[in-house]
Design a protein around this nucleic acid. Sequence first.
DNA 1: TTAAGTGCAAATAGTTTGCCAGAGT
DNA 2: ACTCTGGCAAACTATTTGCACTTAA
Lengths: 136, 136
Amino acid sequence: MSDQREKAMQRRSKQREAIHEELSKLKTHPRSDELYAIVRRRLPNVSLGTVYRNLDRLQREGMAIEIYCGDFVRYDANVSPHDHFLCRTCRRVWDFEPGALRQEPAPSEPQDVGGFRVDGKYTVFTGLCPDCLRNL
Amino acid sequence: MSDQREKAMQRRSKQREAIHEELSKLKTHPRSDELYAIVRRRLPNVSLGTVYRNLDRLQREGMAIEIYCGDFVRYDANVSPHDHFLCRTCRRVWDFEPGALRQEPAPSEPQDVGGFRVDGKYTVFTGLCPDCLRNL
DNA sequence: TTAAGTGCAAATAGTTTGCCAGAGT
DNA sequence: ACTCTGGCAAACTATTTGCACTTAA
């Protein structure tokens, strides 16, 4: 009764490495197209589809997280638990450690709560960033 | 120096009323197309564009909230602070009051934190819902 | 009467996918 | 060699928008 399926062999690729490295350097939580432009400076032939495929894979493997911003997704190579701030005006995302608004950290192991298996949590604060507040 | 601009007059419409009422009846956090199908039973000629326009307006007026699910948006007429759970498999959204994982409520008034004006907060837990856990 | 709101369809934009060539082990 | 991975472009899907017509006030 054992599962006979072969696990697909995982190969490394310079594209995925470049995508992960460039994402790791950034603190700006780039959109796919922004990261694509940056990776293209290193690998001029990389395609946007490859960026999407690898961001999805990195996320599934726990090496990146997705931040849903409504009209698009932003990516972050910092997978340690932290919150974000989404500016309603410029739609940039910032890391946020709000002191007085401190959150419970996400469970590090999947945890069963009321019949749900919780394996992640994300908190996004919304409002106006300092730049947009200044230009009000 | 006073602002002479006329504020645009706001009219009621049976479409917006129907959209808000039907959304209020639902506890399922529908997608736009799901709500569209329901409203269409009352107003067979409403268009999807009208549903979008009014959901956006209800949200801006504080009568509904948007829940970003990555590939689409879900809507909720319950604007009182509460968290959500997004199932990674079926991508349904549930209300979530996680007891041990209790959150700080969102600030009811805009609050300035480290140069940011925070006017909202949303927390989404992710994982597997009871149904999908059963079918594993 | 008049401009806000709607219906419709076309346009937009982010993301996904099929296919075949290319590369990692 | 075997098959995972990528490049490319077409396809897909949620959402937005332009425009002429309705309708609330």
